[in-house]
Simulated assay, not measured.
Amino acid sequence: MNWIDNFVRPKIRSFLSNKRETPENLWVKDPESGEMVFYRDLEANQWVVPNSGYHMKIKPADRLATFFDEGKYDLVPVPAVPVDPLKFRDQKRYTDRLKESRAKTGYDDSVIVATGKLYDRDTTVAVQDFDFIGGSLGMAAGQGIITGLETAVTRKTPFVLFVASGGARMQEGIFSLMQMPRTTVAVLRLREAGLPFFVVFTDPTTGGVTASYAMLGDVHLAEPGARIGFAGARIIEQTIREKLPKGFQRSEYLHEHGMVDMVVHRHNLRSTIGSLAGILTRAEPTAELTGTAPALPAVSLRDAAIAAEGDDGDLAAPSAAHAE
């Protein structure tokens, strides 16, 4: 017997039954320092933790809105590709995984292509969404990259790629691996057109994506602390039976060893790419390039990254969802 339903008056009953909903993500924990940060403060700061400078994952819509002039852009439709050509099933059907990811992210696949203005210059941008099956590379993602490159050639614009991926999508087998040469050919066409290709590495970028179009840019930029590599550090250590250097596969380490041209704070990516695009296209500046990053803490981001525990996680094949 429920005494509220049976004995309490209707008005009081309705008051008791209407529970106040509290957002689950009101506070977000900094993965490095453990600090609790207010959700709206993080959102206003482009998902960079104010005190530690830790760069958290950012949704494609937020990325595009903060990158283009006045947050205005147009999405480019990506041609449809066959769904589940291998009729693959592991713990669940591949088609079910796709449905879940589409419901979760609101996108058809892991690559979103958009066009807009960057300091009054036409620019084509592609963003890889790690929330969509780990940003893995399948036929639809490969077609998205190719569509972005072809759009840049057609519109004669620079092409900017924000990449985040765990590797090739195992559920598509050889069809997934074939996207590596396909995207490489599309990059060559962009290069033949004399248009710049900017790659921005975000956390994490691994596997077949790193082995293909992600390493073919004219300029390679990376966000601070991003993990970049082919195989996971743990797998490499087990193979060579040696302990890897601290900070191995972090963006700062790769910058020191010549694989990344610049490590750029998220707040400065827009102005940095805008300046470089103007130089490489020999265009006259049409808008003032502004934007500075907030002061960093006393401990550098590199020191914080290499001091963090669990720096040797294997991201090339984190789960059955995607692997090389």
Rank of each mutant, 00 (worst) to 15 (best):
R97P: 00
K99V: 06
E100I: 15
E100D: 13
S101N: 10
S101D: 07
R102K: 13
K104E: 04
K104Q: 03
Y107L: 08
D108E: 15
S110C: 04
I112A: 07
I112Q: 11
A114N: 03
T115C: 03
K117R: 10
L118I: 08
Y119R: 04
R121E: 15
D122R: 10
D131A: 15
F132A: 05
I133M: 05
I133R: 04
I133E: 00
G134S: 05
G134L: 07
G135R: 11
G138C: 09
G138V: 08
A141Q: 13
A141W: 05
A141P: 03
G142P: 03
G142N: 09
G144T: 02
I145L: 13
I146C: 06
T147D: 09
G148Q: 09
L149V: 15
T151W: 05
T151A: 11
A152T: 13
T154H: 15
T154L: 14
R155Q: 14
R155V: 06
K156P: 00
K156F: 02
T157P: 03
P158M: 13
F159Y: 15
F159M: 14
F162G: 08
A164W: 00
G166C: 09
G166K: 05
G167M: 10
A168G: 06
R169E: 10
Q171K: 08
E172P: 05
E172W: 11
E172V: 13
G173F: 04
G173K: 04
I174T: 14
I174W: 07
F175E: 11
F175C: 05
S176Q: 10
L177D: 11
M178H: 10
